[in-house]
Nucleic acid binder design. Structure first.
Length: 261
DNA sequence: ATGACACGGCTTCCGTGA
């Protein structure tokens, strides 16, 4: 089973690039972030025509997340991260596909830090940690996939010293990510590439992609029971170099679920 | 310290992103 995550930076603008990538790589499950489209503007017919069914949580202009499954409808288990009924931002959606619980998330950016946006990021992160602990305790085979807006270590930033005060790299944010991992989650991409410089995002500015001035902020985390099934984890880096690209590249994992109950 | 690029929208600029 191949599960991918892709921050598309606008589903409407990115639709041709998304459809091309789906056609070329055919992942079984895809988590999308930054739809930047209201619920009624999600291009469901085009997604269906590509062989996928989808659930999504839209929002006008900002945020928005979706889960696509090839040839079947994801069975939704939740939308909106638990812990704050007043949170109106569409950043979390959760579903079961072929017995695997998939949580698609778009963690807040948090800049500028300090400030109210950074406070919201930290609070959102705490809610995620709380909910992730419940998912671990449930024993379900789970993948947390999405744009976490966190570079976990210095290996994940092209120039760490320039990012120490940024909301994506501040110590408290990295600490939160490591507290999350400490629950037992496996960082799939880093596990398969322990020492490699490997990025998932390149700024549109200053020829960042050409200079490989990137960040690793899109992650797939596996629950303890799923970690032994991990066979591959890669970034479809070339997608970032195409016409009208997102600033993120798709990231995917391959799980060998054969012989599982 | 600033701004570069791209997105959506109440579009001819603004707020936001990372």
């Amino acid at each position: 089973m191949r599960i991918a995550t892709f921050n598309v930076n606008g589903i409407t603008s990115r639709l041709p690039a998304l459809l091309q990538w789906l056609d070329e790589t055919g992942p079984d499950v895809v988590c999308l972030q930054e739809l930047k489209a209201p619920q009624e503007k999600f291009p469901e017919p085009a997604i269906n025509a590509a062989g996928y069914q989808a659930i999504w949580h839209g929002q006008k202009s900002w945020n928005g997340v979706a889960i696509l499954a090839r040839g079947q409808l994801p069975i939704e288990t939740g939308r909106g991260l638990p812990g704050d009924p007043d949170d109106a931002q569409s950043r979390y959606i959760e579903a079961v596909v072929d017995g695997v619980l998939v949580a698609g998330l778009y963690l807040p950016n948090g800049n500028p830090a300090p400030g109210p946006k950074f406070d919201y990021k930290l609070k959102w992160f705490e809610r995620l940690i709380t909910h992730a602990a419940e998912l671990i305790d449930s024993g379900a085979d789970t993948v947390l996939a999405g744009d976490f807006n966190v570079m976990p270590t210095e290996l994940d930033v092209y120039k760490p010293e320039r990012w120490v005060d940024d909301a994506l790299f501040r110590p408290e944010v990295r600490a939160a990510f490591h507290r999350l991992l400490a629950q037992g989650w496996c960082d799939a991409l880093r596990t398969m590439h322990p020492d490699e410089t490997i990025y998932t995002f390149w700024d549109y500015f200053r020829n960042a992609y050409g200079r490989n001035a990137g960040l690793r902020i899109d992650h797939l985390l596996l629950s303890p029971g799923l970690a032994p099934a991990l066979k591959a984890a890669e970034v479809d880096r070339d997608v970032r170099g195409r016409e009208k690209p997102s600033d993120h590249a798709p990231v995917w994992i391959e799980l060998d679920l054969e012989g599982r109950p």
